[in-house]
Design a protein around this nucleic acid. Structure first.
Lengths: 120, 120
DNA sequence: CGTGTTGTACGATTTCCGTCGTAGTACGGT
DNA sequence: ACCGTACTACGACGGAAATCGTACAACACG
């Protein structure tokens, strides 16, 4: 098989905004939450599909579901069911096309701030 | 005089976060509101100090005050009283130092989106 | 068919946010 | 001293958002 051992997408489908319906304000709002920013950074560095469960977030499962939904509905991530897992993936190309450089600058900014705050 | 007819700053002083206290999440949140994004875009294109009153925002004066305060407290703008006017100014250099490219990409993104939405 | 894993749906709660109006303050000019 | 301009402070209000817990659904695997 081409796709290693990843289960095929299941029947359940999730609603995503069309590329043209993605709004800057919504994206910025989605990224302005620490939990969601953390998720996005992780998705960027790992660079592929990740199951929601691999993010060890300090919040309940329902809250976690909530944050992923906000990211999806704002157009930041794409989500797909594979078996019982729900995989998330940054909509990198589309965001780059709509808002060139935005995602990158946010990611490096987040990284810089992390360094800065870690060094007291 | 060096400074044309601009009144000198008055005694009233406003609280601003130190450069090191500016947080990405707060900046993103500040920028995620349409009204505030509009203010920031205007400040960027006009490129200097602007009185709050020159922004013709479709909200009441109190709401206007509120939005400027959010921008100031998040570190996006600097504000200073000159006579009865309160001038606002983007903290461009500091933001660039903290989050390189971020402000620019947000501004161009906002501009692109405006174009895109204007063309139906 | 059970069982465990993953994630959802829903309701409750609490807090935050954008908005307004009214009343007030600071300042510049006359 | 008075007035007008520019903005603030405060309280209210409605809606959005973050969080949780409990109960439930979809799926893989034995």
């Amino acid at each position: 098989m081409a796709t290693q051992q990843a289960p095929a997408p299941s029947g359940r489908v999730l609603d995503h905004p069309d590329t043209d319906d993605i709004r800057l304000e919504h994206v910025l709002h989605a990224l302005s939450d620490p939990m969601r920013l953390r998720i996005v950074c992780r998705l960027a560095t790992d660079g592929g599909e990740l199951a929601c469960s691999v993010f060890d977030l300090p919040v309940s499962k329902s809250t976690c579901t909530h944050h992923f939904r906000v990211l999806r509905e704002s157009g930041v991530i794409q989500q797909i069911y594979r078996g019982t897992a729900k995989m998330s993936l940054l909509r990198t190309e589309e965001l780059e096309r709509l808002f060139p450089g935005l995602l990158d600058s946010v990611l490096t900014a987040a990284h810089h701030q992390e360094q800065r705050l870690a060094g007291q």
